[in-house]
């Protein structure tokens, strides 16, 4: 691996910008994601910044089972993100459907719609678990 490639990889690990998207969650997971971004946990010390637009984001934080209505929108947002991009499924719902599994109007989990890089279980996933999941995702990229 050349020096440039190493620097680029290092930079990607040190500055993951996230986009938060609710794919039909009961809102508890969203509150926990927001809680992870507050001064109490301060994700900015890892370089994480919440962005409003998919064009700026590297990591898509999804919460909730994918409802039929939101599926195509989720795919569109995923397509709007520039490469390289990662998707993190936050909460049991987004991992497998959770309590909503089998409902007539939902898919069972984010990976039914778009490829997922990391799963963070928990109902709701606590801020610590979310930070842990993101850090694990990043350190798994480091070895690649």
């Amino acid at each position: 691996m050349g020096l440039i490639q190493k620097t680029v990889n290092w930079a990607r690990l040190k500055s993951p910008w996230v986009l938060h998207f609710n794919t039909g969650a009961c809102n508890a997971c969203d509150i926990e994601i927001i809680a992870a971004l507050t001064p109490r946990y301060d994700l900015e010390r890892f370089g994480v910044v919440l962005k409003g637009t998919p064009r700026h984001a590297d990591v898509l934080l999804c919460s909730g089972p994918v409802t039929k209505q939101i599926k195509c929108r989720l795919q569109r947002i995923y397509d709007q993100m520039p490469e390289p991009k990662f998707v993190v499924a936050v909460g049991t719902c987004s991992c497998s459907g959770g309590v909503f599994d089998g409902c007539y109007n939902v898919e069972s989990g984010i990976d039914q719609a778009i490829p997922v890089s990391a799963y963070i279980p928990g109902c709701p996933a606590s801020p610590k678990a979310i930070i842990d999941g993101v850090v694990k995702l990043l350190s798994s990229l480091e070895t690649k």
Binding site: R12, K14, E44, R45
Partner: peptide, 28 residues
């Protein structure tokens, strides 16, 4: 800004890392 909000704030290389990352990303 971070210290005034009682948080840790980014490490010293953050602006450089942001820039390198953005430069190496896909451009749409």
């Amino acid at each position: 800004c971070a210290r005034l909000q009682n948080r840790m704030g980014p490490p010293w290389f953050q602006p450089f890392a942001d820039f390198v990352k953005l430069v190496s990303k896909e451009e749409i």
